[in-house]
Simulated scan of single mutants.
Amino acid sequence: MIRAGRDCQVRTLTDLAAAAGKSAKSFRNQRLHKVPGHPEPISSARARVLLWDGEQVDAFHAGRPVPALPEEDSRDDLLDRNEAAELADVEPRTWDRYANLPGMRPRPDLVAVAEVDHWRRGEVLDWLDDRPGPGSSPGRPVGSREAASPHARPSCWSAIRPSRPPQRPLNSASLLTRRNVPSHAPARLRYAGYSRMMPS
């Protein structure tokens, strides 16, 4: 769980490896994130991607006491899929199905931190309170699907770590350049070079 207001502090294993001057694979294989005293991940135990609190990690490497994280729950805590599922008293796979299960109310908006889906504790609680009881209308047309990225909320983490800009689509001239086929080559050669790159 990412405690309220600490999404800017989140570090990934790749971040830890880069700070140590190592590749993520080497860092993981040497288990440098498991040396004695190293802060524990803030992710849930079954999380697919591990995350750490940067303030704790920085203190550890500086030889300072590792500060404790807030213990009191907040409505602005960010829960990963396992934690959100636990709060909803369902299995993580069931929580995943709520995203596109016909007849279900839409889940709360996503908050993506380090490319990991999270949900605000308060909004999950509100969603649970608003769920209709047996026999009542689910509040969403049957067959509709939950919108994904258009309604995903940005986080402070994504603001300070911009994602890789999308690549421009390649046209035929760009493809030929990558295959070292000069633009002034005879038409039959240019066609042959281009056709080899097209799916059969």
Rank of each mutant, 00 (worst) to 15 (best):
R145V: 12
R178M: 07
A159P: 09
T177L: 06
D130A: 14
A84D: 10
P92E: 04
R145M: 01
A147R: 07
P150V: 00
V111I: 07
E115I: 11
E86K: 15
R179D: 08
R168N: 00
S158R: 06
E83C: 14
D117S: 14
P141L: 08
A85S: 13
L125S: 07
E91Y: 14
V181F: 01
P166H: 09
G122E: 12
P150L: 00
P166G: 11
P166V: 07
N100K: 08
R131G: 07
R164A: 12
E86D: 13
P165C: 10
W157F: 12
A99H: 13
S174N: 09
H118Q: 02
L79E: 00
A88D: 04
S149R: 07
E115Y: 13
P182E: 00
A147E: 13
P102Q: 02
R107Q: 00
A159C: 10
D130R: 15
L79N: 02
A85H: 11
H118F: 06
G139V: 03
G135C: 02
P132S: 03
Q167L: 15
P102L: 08
P154F: 05
V124C: 03
E146A: 14
S163M: 07
R168M: 09
L170H: 03
V142T: 13
R121H: 00
N100R: 14
R178A: 09
R164C: 11
A84V: 15
P102V: 04
P162T: 07
D130T: 02
S149Q: 15
L87C: 13
R153T: 03
R93S: 05
P92D: 01
R140F: 08
G139T: 05
S137Q: 02
W119I: 02
R164Y: 10
L128Q: 14
R164D: 08
P108N: 12
L87P: 07
G122P: 02
G122Q: 06
V90P: 04
P138I: 06
V116T: 07
P162S: 12
S163H: 11
S144G: 00
D129C: 09
V124D: 12
P186M: 01
A148Y: 15
A159W: 09
L175S: 03
N180W: 03
S155R: 07
G135D: 05
A112K: 13
R131Y: 14
